[in-house]
Computed example of a mutant assay.
Amino acid sequence: MVAAGGQDELAQDFVQFAVEAGVLRFGEFKTKAGRASPYFFNAGLFDDGAKLGRLAQFYALRILASRIEFDMLFGPAYKGIPLAAAVAVELARLGRNVPYAYNRKEAKDHGEGGLLVGAPLAGRVLIVDDVMSAGTAARESIALIRAAGATPHAVAIALDRQEMATEGGQDVPHSAVQYVRERLGLQVCAIARLADLLQYLGGQAGQPLGEHHARVLAYRQRYGVD
């Protein structure tokens, strides 16, 4: 998937898809950390069957290419729920049929009850989410998975922003993805990274999208981590 010159073709195709779908936008947006970001990625805007199906293809291809070993998928409420379901369907279409589960925000007190829905959590669990801002959602998922007797093994996300996380309102010298990898011990695979977005914008010189390259680069130079 990585062409000569280091270009990740899957990532480039994904960035273009996200831009065309209106999911990846440019302007000035306030992040959870209070930063003025020149771009915004909102996976909730993959809001029809065609977009969600295409998104699932990108996830499935990246997951399979990563060679991460896993036994089932888990989608954290709420955005992770349709993602895990769609990725499970696409993986099955590609010949890798695995069970999936997701959680509720509040325990159900009737019917089957409980916080978890879907297949019983067991074995090595791959968490499917959209982005990772501070690692908080990952920690919550890890606790649920472990409480069920399964092993939180890896996380798949759409976009790695490759920027410093915050703790107690202060910037820290690692990203949320690095925190999950190094402190929580989970593997992480991302369809695309901020570096891929910059590469895409750099190839749009002379086009309207190319005008955003300098601001996104400046943002990465100020807040970015490798």
Rank of each mutant, 00 (worst) to 15 (best):
T166Y: 15
G111I: 07
R215H: 05
T166H: 06
D171F: 01
Y223H: 11
D160N: 15
E182W: 06
E20F: 10
V177K: 05
H212P: 10
A50W: 15
V180K: 00
A86G: 07
A60W: 13
L94N: 15
G206C: 08
G5D: 09
E106Q: 05
R93E: 14
N42L: 08
A101S: 04
A60E: 12
L194C: 01
A65R: 12
V87G: 01
V216F: 05
A21N: 12
P82C: 11
D129F: 07
L194M: 11
Y102F: 15
I142T: 13
R146H: 12
L10K: 06
P99I: 10
M1R: 15
A18Y: 02
A218C: 05
A56W: 08
Y59P: 14
C189Y: 05
A148H: 09
M1K: 14
G5L: 02
I68F: 10
V125P: 08
D171Y: 06
R25M: 14
E9G: 00
P173L: 06
D130H: 08
C189D: 13
I81F: 08
S37P: 13
G224A: 00
F17K: 02
L186H: 01
K108G: 02
I191Q: 07
G202Y: 10
H153N: 14
Y59T: 05
F41L: 04
A43N: 07
L61A: 14
T166A: 03
H213T: 03
A11W: 02
A92T: 14
A86I: 03
L73K: 06
L52E: 03
G224D: 00
Y179K: 13
D13P: 04
H110N: 07
Y223A: 02
E140P: 03
A195N: 09
T136C: 13
Q12V: 02
A150H: 07
R35N: 13
V216Y: 05
K105R: 11
Q178V: 03
A86L: 09
Y219W: 08
L91Y: 12
R181I: 11
K32M: 11
G53L: 08
Q221D: 06
K32Y: 04
D71K: 11
G111D: 13
L126E: 04
L217K: 14
A60T: 13
D130G: 10
L115M: 10
D48I: 09
A143I: 00
A214Y: 13
A101L: 07
A77C: 11
L186I: 04
P82W: 02
L159E: 01
Q170L: 10
D13L: 03
G168Y: 05
V172K: 03
I157V: 15
I81K: 09
K51A: 10
A158L: 12
L10S: 10
K30T: 15
G210N: 11
K108N: 01
E112T: 11
H174P: 00
L55H: 00
L115W: 09
D196H: 09
V117H: 01
D171L: 14
T31Y: 06
L91D: 04
